[in-house]
Each structure stands twice: as structure tokens, then as C-alpha cells.
């Protein structure tokens, strides 16, 4: 992401490109933990997708397919809310770099 100078910004700071925040990768904010998806325990309830504050849960055709680590801030809401299958969580928080 290239920072803009004041001459590059529209008058009134009007943003003409919808969703341009996507250029800012918030994944670098993750301090210690990242979520890991365990597919065999996933019941596709999509609570993780609904409750993710960063829209960092990927879904395709109504199914969870993993995480977008470019934006995931590692808050852990998905792992806490995941009901899992028979008591086994489908999302666990793991230490970064493991």
C-alpha cells in the first residue's frame, strides 16, 4: 500500500473508490495467536463468518472454506463461538509461526 500525499487526495477528502480499505492489510496486527480451521469438525454453521468483525472468514457457495490471514486480527471470537462437532472445536487458536 502506497501512502498518498495531500495533493493526491480529492477535495473534501471524498473517497471515490468503494472498499479501498482492502488495500490495508490488518493481518499484521495479529500479536500472538491465529485461528486454525479443522475441517473434519466443522458443521458449517457459519457462526464464525457471522461473528467475525474483520470479514476474514472465507465462504464459497454458502460454505466456510478457511481464513483470510491478510485481514484476520486474531481476536479469537470465531474459536470461542465455534460449536464444533461432538465437543471438538472446528476452530482453534494457535501460536503464530507454529
Amino acid at each position: 500500500m502506497k501512502l498518498k500525499g495531500w495533493k493526491d487526495v480529492n477535495p473534501g477528502a471524498v473517497c471515490t473508490e468503494a472498499g479501498s480499505a482492502l488495500q490495508f492489510k490488518t493481518g499484521s496486527w495479529r500479536a500472538a495467536y491465529r485461528p486454525r480451521w479443522i475441517e473434519e469438525n466443522c458443521i458449517q454453521c457459519l457462526f464464525c463468518w457471522a461473528y467475525c468483525p474483520d470479514m476474514a472468514v472465507n465462504v464459497k457457495d454458502g460454505k466456510m472454506t478457511g481464513f483470510n490471514y491478510d485481514y484476520c486480527k486474531g481476536c479469537g471470537i470465531c474459536a470461542l463461538e465455534c460449536p464444533g462437532k461432538k465437543g471438538n472445536k472446528a476452530i482453534v487458536m494457535e501460536e503464530e509461526g507454529k
Binding site: 472498499g19 480499505a21 482492502l22 488495500q23 490495508f24 492489510k25 490488518t26 496486527w29 495479529r30 468483525p53 474483520d54 470479514m55 476474514a56 483470510n68 491478510d70 485481514y71 486480527k73 486474531g74 481476536c75 479469537g76 471470537i77
Partner: peptide
Amino acid sequence: LTSGHRMCAGC
């Protein structure tokens, strides 16, 4: 509302 907004983690 897209990713890349700068609300705190877990907001």
C-alpha cells in the same frame, strides 16, 4: 463493509 477497516481486534 470490507476487511481492512481499523477497528480494534474483537470489536
